[in-house]
C-alpha cells in the first residue's frame, strides 16, 4: 500500500476498464477468498434446512448479507414467521447505515444511479477494503464497485455450491476460515495512522468485546464503533484546544 504518494488525479488519461477491473480485483480478492468457506457453509446449512440451490441462490442475490442470511436460514429451519425474519434481518443489517455514511464522504460527485448500484454491495468486508483504500489514495468509486460486485459474485456462487454439494464440502482446509480475520487485521493496521487512531481502535476493541459479552446479537458493532469514534473525536478537540 505505497500508492498514497503517486496520486491518480495527475494522470491525464482515464483508466481503461481492464485496469479498473485488475486493480479492483487485486484489492478485493481476500474478500472473495474469505467468502468461499462462509458461503459454502451457508449453502450447506440452507440445504439442511430444506432450501434447494435455487432458493439459496435467490436469497444471496436478493439479500446479499452474510450474517443476516445465516440467521434467516436458522429461523426458516425453525419455522419462524416471515415478519419475525424480516425484522431480525433489518436489525442485524442496521450497522450498514454507519458504513454507508462513512463511505458517502468518499463518493462525492457520484450520480443517483451509481449510488443505487453501489449500495447493493456494501458489506462489512467490502466496506473495510474500500474505506482503507479510499483514504490511502489511488482509489475511486469504479474500483470500489469492482470490489463490491466481485465479492457478490463469489458469494452467490459459493452459497449455491454449498447447497448442491452439501456434506461433501470439506471444512477448515488450508486455514481458509482465517482469511477474513487476517484481512481485517491488516486493514486495521493500515488505519492506524496516528496515536488518535490507535486510541480509537483500542477503545472500540475493548468496548465491542465487553458489549458483545453483555448483550446478545450484533449490536456491539454499532455501539462500540460510535462510542469509540465519539471519544476519539472529543480527544482530538481537546488536544487542539490545549
Amino acid at each position: 500500500m505505497t500508492s498514497g504518494e503517486n496520486s491518480r488525479e495527475q494522470r491525464p488519461e482515464p483508466d481503461s476498464l481492464r485496469t479498473v477491473l485488475r486493480e479492483g480485483l487485486a484489492a478485493g480478492w481476500p474478500v472473495c477468498l474469505g467468502y468461499l468457506p462462509i458461503g459454502l457453509a451457508l449453502g450447506v446449512l440452507g440445504g439442511n434446512a430444506g432450501l434447494d440451490p435455487l432458493r439459496i441462490g435467490l436469497m444471496s442475490l436478493l439479500v446479499f448479507a452474510g450474517s443476516a442470511q445465516f440467521i434467516a436460514v436458522a429461523m426458516l429451519a425453525a419455522a419462524a414467521s416471515p415478519p419475525a425474519i424480516v425484522a431480525t434481518v433489518f436489525v442485524v443489517n442496521l450497522r450498514h447505515l454507519l458504513m454507508s455514511s462513512a463511505l458517502a464522504v468518499q463518493l462525492r460527485g457520484s450520480g443517483r444511479a451509481f449510488l443505487a448500484l453501489f449500495a447493493y454491495g456494501v458489506t462489512d468486508e467490502s466496506f473495510a477494503v474500500n474505506s482503507v483504500r479510499f483514504r490511502d489514495g489511488g482509489w475511486d468509486r469504479w474500483r470500489a464497485l469492482v470490489v463490491n460486485q466481485s465479492a457478490n459474485a463469489v458469494w452467490i456462487a459459493a452459497t449455491v455450491a454449498g447447497a448442491i454439494l452439501g456434506g461433501l464440502v470439506p471444512t477448515g482446509a488450508f486455514g481458509i476460515d482465517y482469511a477474513l480475520i487476517a484481512m481485517f487485521i491488516c486493514l486495521l493496521v493500515f488505519q492506524l495512522r496516528s496515536r488518535l487512531h490507535v486510541v480509537t481502535a483500542l477503545l472500540a476493541g475493548v468496548l465491542s468485546v465487553a458489549w458483545s459479552l453483555w448483550v446478545p446479537g450484533d449490536s456491539y458493532i454499532v455501539v462500540a464503533a460510535c462510542a469509540a469514534a465519539t471519544a476519539g473525536f472529543f480527544l482530538q478537540r481537546r488536544r487542539r484546544r490545549s
Binding site: 462489512d124 473495510a128 481502535a201 477503545l203 458493532i221 462500540a224 464503533a225 469514534a229 465519539t230 473525536f233
Partner: peptide, 19 residues
Amino acid sequence: EEWLGLIPVALLSALLAPA
C-alpha cells in the same frame, strides 16, 4: 466529517476484537 473519519478504524476494530 471529522467524526465519520474515525468511524472506519473504530468499525474495523469492533468487528475484529470479539472474533
